[in-house]
Design a binder for these strands. Structure first.
Lengths: 207, 207
DNA sequence: GCCTGTGAAGCTATTCACAGCT
DNA sequence: AGCTGTGAATAGCTTCACAGGC
């Protein structure tokens, strides 16, 4: 029903809608949202159709209604917890980034092998030893993992996450993780992105 | 000719091939590379066809030849320089991540508004004040920018990058940048990824 | 026999274009 | 008059399937 891509865009629309709501906007047209999101108006309308939220011709879509409808789709009824593995430079950046950002989705536990980081609290997040990973996420029912460890460790950590019952992973390691087919992986591969951008940056004046 | 997606995969294949070469592997079959990259063998063959590198039935592809052919496509003859804007948690993580990683593609200059960070050298990278951004990237001919500033600053920084002649941007800010059509933007939107993973993580046992 | 290279088929995602509403 | 909702058309990407080579 909801495609990979459209879910991503809905997440984006919601953030744009929060901004609009803050500025006191109460209605928005598909072409306005499209402009903000850098997609076409038809795309916006199709995506919004999928959340079962309809606008009125002339006035457009009600901002609050949209936020609520998208929330019903993207959010769980009660808050969802994620585990972060790897509290290096990148891990700390991710923690700082998400702390208090989404009420329905928070990083509830962090893991590292470095004893100096264990049993501390960073950005309000409790840190554990990696060897307790499987136990802790099982006990706390954590279903989402964020892998921010070096490439050499990433597959081993992934297997621990899967053993602990995780069903979705955001992967920052520059390799492809091997997981059972029912575990969803989203890669955030900086190396790939930078090389891709470098490639397209030198293909002059097209498109 | 070369699609957005296939360029990304070629970057991945190359890294996998480096690993294979290090382990002394000299030939590889499409299905082996496919297994490592988590794609189909047909996909690998099609991508490799695009770089004009052919394998031999029975023995597969020569690892060194492939690395070289992919390099000819992805790399510029002389090294390409990138500018990083924002030396916070995330910026430092990105610097640490790329330092000395790719010989043909390096972060050559970093920018921040915080005076404490200016005129220092972090991970071998010179730091400048943001107000010098346009000048410095123009003078040094930098064509790739990495945006790692807060969302509220990202569009302003982007406009400076474009004014400075940048043609490709990796964007870590959780908004969509507005750029002229001939500037390529790759979004690394952590919020989107995490929400997407959280969504698919709770759709049990499918696919 | 097993692998590559590739035309053709199949799928998925996006855009077009217009009927219907206000 | 201008916007939404949506069937139909298009474009883009992936897989199938098999001919050709070793």
């Amino acid at each position: 029903m909801h495609s990979h891509r459209s879910i991503g865009r809905l997440s984006l629309y919601r953030r744009l809608l929060y901004d609009l709501a803050e500025n006191g906007t109460d209605h928005v047209h598909s072409h306005q949202l499209a402009g903000l999101a850098e997609v076409t108006a038809a795309q916006v309308r199709r995506d919004l159709m999928a959340v079962g939220c309809s606008g009125t011709p002339r006035r457009g879509y009600n901002v609050q209604d949209l936020i609520e409808s998208i929330g019903e789709l993207l959010d769980t009824p009660k808050a969802q917890a994620a585990a972060l593995i790897g509290i290096g430079n990148l891990g700390r950046a991710i923690l700082a980034y998400f702390v208090g950002r989404r009420p329905k989705l928070e990083i509830a536990a962090a893991f590292d092998v470095n004893p100096a980081k264990i049993n501390r609290t960073i950005h309000g997040c409790r840190c554990y030893a990696v060897k307790r990973l499987v136990d802790v996420i099982k006990r706390r029912g954590i279903k989402v993992g964020i892998v921010a460890v070096p490439a050499s460790e990433a597959q081993r950590i992934t297997e621990m996450l899967v053993r602990g019952g995780v069903r979705g992973i955001v992967n920052f390691a520059p390799i492809r993780l091997h997981v059972p087919r029912d575990v969803f992986v989203e890669d955030m591969d900086m190396t790939m992105s930078l090389e891709k951008v470098a490639y397209f940056a030198r293909l002059e004046g097209r498109k």
